[in-house]
Design a protein around this nucleic acid. Structure first.
Lengths: 243, 243
DNA sequence: CCAAAAGTGTTGCATATACACCCATGG
DNA sequence: CCATGGGTGTATATGCAACACTTTTGG
């Protein structure tokens, strides 16, 4: 970027507000859920919206996103959670009050503790992915973009473990894929694919799960160090025909 | 995002400047080139930088990026060119003068007309990808991110045609892959892969290329309607071992 | 006639898919 | 002892990498 002398005047342009918006996803009882907050004021009073807030003067967008994530979920420690920049939304009229440029993030959580209603007093809640529409502002678009991105990244990254608790069974991991993609996968083949990818998961030293399930106790795994998936784990039911 | 009443004061926070930065890539005589501008003033006077500029009050970042692309390349029509949002860079001190949040874009061009030195008077030029370092500000990081993204997207999208003129041969398309990835590909197999993907390329009605080449004239193709590549065209020389 | 680039064919290995089957636990 | 979910084996199909070969042009 190149600047002229006039650019040094910070108020040469109408100021832009910079915010972060968070698409926080989790899996709850076999269905994809989103963290939403209910708006108390106009515009969009009574509508659900993505959590978010202003970027502070000395923060990066990433720092602001993690701060908001902690505030909105009420979790004590959000350092381990998956948080990734999605894209930036900057249409001039996306907020009727003023010029707001929003950097959107996607966050993925394992379990789903009931959210701490944010400092903004609005109600916060986990909603099934399809519910609460239409969302405020352009949040329907942001959320759809987030879902599409997660869909795609499950194929060629190890992202699925971000939905799982620290220790999990392969059955749980498979359910992540089946829930997000909305398809069924062949268990034996899924198992082989996952185990054949070095660093995707690693067995926890001495354990097997007992008390919960009805069938044979499943082995427990932890997320491995790998991030990419080569070759990818392709989701079925696309006829190899790109749009 | 939720607002309190105080948020209505546009000057409640120190204003953020919002800019766009462009990583404009092309292939020139078999090598990847980047469009860079030379800075005339401090900071980073004399350094090369990515082209870019401020987002105007009534523009989206996308609109601003396309406007800057037209200005900096001097091309009359930039509507057909590939332009895609990369990510947003918002570290508080990335510009020593003031708080600048920059939405970065990646643009891909077929041919490489000599750039019109921008309105900012600075010199503009195509440089081989490796040259001109270190760039001003955090532009080394932005450019590296852009390259990485293009690398990855060649595998599973039809993006490579964005580097090609309206009509091209399969040899030229293959050179795009080889140049960007820095590897050699097997011509027969590459050919089959591309032609087996419906909508990737389509033959131009009656043509074959004659005058230029030394060997057998190659058939001409146009970019097809497809955007995704299933299955992907994997780049070789990665041992299937994710990090 | 030779070099260079386009295009075709073939073969072997790797992987995926689809399914049949056994194992261990709770009720 | 049966339903339920975990885990193993295997045959067939598919896809891809490697490489030999033919074709058509310019010099």
């Amino acid at each position: 970027m190149t600047f002229n002398k006039a650019d040094y005047d910070k108020y040469a342009y109408e100021p832009f507000a910079v915010t972060v918006d968070l698409a926080v996803l989790t899996i709850r009882s076999g269905a994809l859920h989103v963290l939403l907050v209910e708006r108390g004021q106009e515009p969009y009073a009574g509508h659900w919206a993505l959590p978010g807030g202003f970027v502070e003067p000395r923060e990066s967008a990433e720092t602001a996103a993690r701060r908001e994530l902690a505030e909105e979920t009420g979790l004590a420690d959000v350092t381990g959670l998956h948080l990734e920049q999605l894209r930036t939304y900057s249409e001039p009229d996306r907020d009727p009050r003023m010029r707001v440029v929003s950097v959107a993030f996607t966050a993925l959580l394992p379990d789903a503790p009931e959210p701490h209603a944010g400092s903004d007093a609005a109600r916060a809640s986990w909603l099934p992915y399809e519910e609460g529409r239409p969302l405020a502002f352009d949040h329907d678009v942001i959320l759809a973009d987030a879902h599409e991105r997660v869909d795609a990244k499950l194929e060629y990254t190890c992202l699925a473990t971000a939905f799982c608790p620290p220790e999990f069974t392969l059955g749980e991991l498979q359910q992540v894929y089946e829930t997000v993609w909305g398809t069924d996968l062949d268990r034996p083949n899924f198992r082989r694919k996952v185990l054949a990818t070095p660093g995707f998961v690693e067995p926890v030293p001495g354990g097997a799960r007992l008390t919960g399930g009805r069938g044979k106790p499943a082995a427990l795994y932890r997320a491995g160090p790998a991030t990419a998936l080569h070759p990818p784990l392709l989701r079925p039911s696309r006829e190899g025909r790109p749009a």
